[in-house]
Computed example of a mutant assay.
Amino acid sequence: MGFLKTCVLRRNACTAVCFWRRQFIQKPSVRKISTTSPRSTVMPAWVIDKYGSNEVLRFTQNMMIPMIHYPNEVIIKVHAASINPIDVNMRSGYGATALNMKRDPLHIKIKGEEFPLTLGRDVSGVVMECGLDVRYFKPGDEVSHKPKSLTHGQAASLPYVALTAWSAINKIGGLNDKNCAGKRVLILGASGGVGTFAIQVMKAWDAHVTAVCSQDASELVRKLGADDVIDYKSGNMEEQLKYLKPFDFILDSVGGSTETWALNFLKKWSGATYVTLVTPFLLNMDRLGIADGMLQTGVTVGSKTLKHFWQGVHYRWAFFMASGPYLDDIAELVDAGKIQPVIEKTFPFSKVPEAFLKVERGHARGKTVVSVV
Rank of each mutant, 00 (worst) to 15 (best):
T210C: 05
G173H: 06
F19I: 14
E259C: 10
K351F: 08
G189V: 13
E360K: 09
N284A: 12
A155C: 10
V126G: 04
K338G: 01
M294P: 01
P159F: 05
K50E: 10
G192S: 13
V313K: 00
I65N: 03
F319L: 15
L241G: 07
G366W: 03
S34D: 10
G302W: 07
I86R: 00
Y70E: 15
F320V: 08
E239R: 03
T279Y: 00
R184S: 09
D141R: 08
A207P: 02
A336L: 07
I230K: 00
T305F: 01
K183M: 12
G337V: 08
I83H: 00
F24D: 11
P116M: 09
S257A: 15
F115L: 06
D133P: 09
G131L: 11
T260P: 01
P353Y: 06
H308T: 13
E73W: 06
F19P: 01
K233Y: 05
A217R: 12
F24H: 05
V123C: 13
F265M: 11
L132C: 09
Y70A: 15
T196L: 04
A156H: 08
V127C: 08
A190Q: 06
K146A: 10
S234W: 07
L266T: 05
R121V: 11
I339T: 04
L175I: 09
I290W: 00
A16L: 11
